[in-house]
Design a binder for these strands. Structure first.
Length: 556
RNA sequence: UGUCUUAUGGUGUAAUGGUAGCACGACAGAUUCUGGUCCUGUUCGUCUAGGUUCGAAUCCUAGUAAGACAACCA
């Protein structure tokens, strides 16, 4: 058994374990704010949070960081839980930062009593101004040194709802000249009376800020490893400082930061995704073009493929961008092994076998999955009139065109070898029908069928196929890194990210499919059944195309 | 002209002082009743300069480059 190399987080955990820290206990948490849908970047965090707990015999809890009622909603709580479960993880407990509002408030009182917090009455602008800049030290607030009793009284008033929103804040008293901006008397409590909290309603008038809530919540819960993304690196000294102020035993949580996930041709910020949804540029959070988990699910991505992808990209502290192709590769890798092969024609043109008896129908067998011996076969009807793809015919074909062209033999998958004899065109010269003759001795399985031909095409019997809508998805953006582009992001959107084809056909075998079933449409790609699909009107999404070396050849 | 962090092929990631490897991509070939899959091969890398060491991608120093931080967001 080959030993898998550990990532830097696992190394830290093993080192802590070896040193006996926190009594050898491992506890993590996944701490989303319920203000948006989870995306594949969150999946990366979920995999390490739950993964570390699993691998080191620890526990992982789900904790909603719901300290800002202005932005949060139960709608998101529900979707977040659903997405985590879909990925295949199970939390030990569900916690909410709002569960700790009383404890946090008590802690704030302690800070005031210890002379480590004060009430500031300045405006947000004044406070921002005094903060200085990364290179210029800040200025102390005129309210910084007011007596402890006065702070206590004012904070009580804030908490009672006697002070309007925005008029006062509670700040930690640390160091306005600190080189780390976060130490310049950070605001730890603000007044919010106008928005109900999704769990506590209007009970609380003051709410703790992230820095005063996150690490403390970790501490209250007994978290040992608080894993988050790199953007919180500069917060870590403050995380540690707060804990220093009230730590009572040897137990201590530890924050570790890793690189967040970026993928080419997409955006990973909740703000940008919200815009896409609100401006109607996509159909919703679950639009199959969205990098949200709900979008990816609707697109046809599987939980295992996403986890496998996360496993491939690893965890480091280097900020980079992953090729979308790696994600697609991971998905194809899985679906190739699992997806049933069926035929679908998404740009149909009629093919008539002139020497095949009218009215005759043959029931043929076709394999479900050549990659899986146990997958069996299913039946497909063959007759005189078929559907084939327009792209599979060319009148004046180049040498490397291995499909249907007059005079050249091709194989109809699982059926016969045919030779094109001509076409019928309308007045504008558009091809209306294609004609061919079949060789009755070349039915699949017969010795003559082994004859070498240039190519194999998929097809459908006109009388035995059912209509379907097929939605062809492509990347949402035309540039690799939309976030870094100076242009307005509207200009970067791919106008062809969705192409709806309403005149497609699929085999009768698919008449009873259910939403999220996935298939390989032979020679086209992997498709799944959209939730919009009904027995009367089937709707398929293209999850990802097959690798297409003919398309590549054509681009040369 | 601050603090923190990072630097390995086109991309991502290993090598934990001892042979720079893997995956994706690209390119070429073979096989094929999917121009898919499978298989084979090719291409391409330790940011720079010093130092420590028998030996440095790894440790040290200095540069260079990139990123994060100045919300009553998380």
């Amino acid at each position: 058994m080959e030993k898998k190399s550990l990532n830097f987080i696992e190394l830290i955990v093993e080192d802590d374990l070896a040193k006996g820290r926190n009594d050898g206990r491992i506890q993590t948490r996944f701490p989303p704010e319920p203000n948006g849908y989870l995306h594949i970047g969150h999946a990366k965090a979920i995999c390490i949070d739950f993964g570390i707990a699993e691998d080191y015999d620890g526990t992982c809890n789900l904790r909603f960081d719901d300290t800002n009622p202005v932005k949060e909603d139960v709608e998101y709580v529900d979707s977040i839980m659903e997405d985590i479960k879909w990925l295949g993880f199970q939390w030990k407990n569900v916690y909410y930062a709002s569960d700790y509002f009383q404890q946090l408030w008590d802690l704030a009182i302690k800070f005031i009593k210890d002379g480590k917090a004060y009430v500031d009455e300045q405006t947000a602008e004044e406070i921002a101004q005094q903060k200085g800049s990364p290179t210029v030290p800040g200025v102390e607030s005129p309210y910084r040194n007011r007596p402890m009793e006065e702070n206590l009284e004012l904070f009580q008033k804030m908490s009672n709802g006697e002070i309007p929103d925005g008029k006062m804040v509670l700040r930690a008293k640390i160091d306005m000249a600190a080189p780390n901006m976060h130490f310049r008397d950070p605001i730890i409590y603000r007044i919010i009376t106008t928005h109900p909290h999704h769990r506590t309603g209007y009970k609380w008038k003051v709410y703790p800020m992230y820095d005063f809530a996150h690490g403390q919540s970790d501490y209250f819960e007994g978290v040992t490893h608080s894993i988050c993304t790199l953007e919180f690196e500069v917060h870590r000294p403050l995380y540690d400082w707060f804990i220093d102020q009230f730590q009572e035993t040897d137990y201590r949580p530890r924050q570790i930061e890793f690189n967040r996930l970026n993928i080419t041709y997409t955006v990973m910020s909740k703000r940008r995704m919200l815009q896409l949804v609100q401006e109607g540029l996509v159909s919703g959070w679950d639009d199959p073009r969205m990098p949200t988990l709900t979008g990816l699910r609707r697109r046809g991505y599987t939980p295992t493929s996403i986890r496998s992808f996360i496993d491939k990209i690893g965890y480091t502290k280097v900020e980079g961008t992953i090729d979308l192709e790696l994600l697609e590769h991971t998905l194809r890798e899985e679906l190739n092994k699992t997806a049933t092969r069926v035929s679908a024609v998404i740009n149909p043109v009629k093919l008539i076998i002139t020497n095949y008896p009218e009215g005759q129908v043959e029931i043929l067998e076709t394999v479900n999955n050549p990659e899986d011996e146990n997958s069996g076969t299913h039946e497909i009807a063959f007759s005189r009139e078929l559907w084939m793809e327009r792209e599979d015919f060319m009148e004046d074909a180049p040498k490397k065109f291995f499909r249907m062209t007059p005079g050249q033999e091709v194989r109809l998958k699982s059926a016969y070898i045919v030779k094109c004899t001509g076409v019928k065109k309308d007045a504008e010269g558009n091809i209306e029908e294609i004609y061919c003759e079949y060789d009755p001795m070349t039915k699949s399985g017969m010795p003559e069928a082994n004859r070498k031909v240039k190519g194999t095409l998929h097809w459908l019997s006109v009388a035995h196929s059912i209509p379907a809508e097929v939605r062809l998805y492509d990347r949402l953006f035309t540039v690799e890194n939309p976030s870094a582009d100076e242009r307005d992001y509207h200009e970067l959107l791919n106008p062809n990210s969705l192409e709806v084809r309403t005149n497609c056909y699929v085999e009768e075998y698919l008449k009873d499919v259910k939403p999220f079933d996935h298939f390989q449409f032979q020679r086209l790609g992997y498709f799944n059944v959209d939730p919009d699909s009904t027995p009367e009107k089937l709707v398929f999404n293209r999850t990802v195309s097959l690798k297409d070396s003919w398309a590549k050849e054509q681009r040369k």
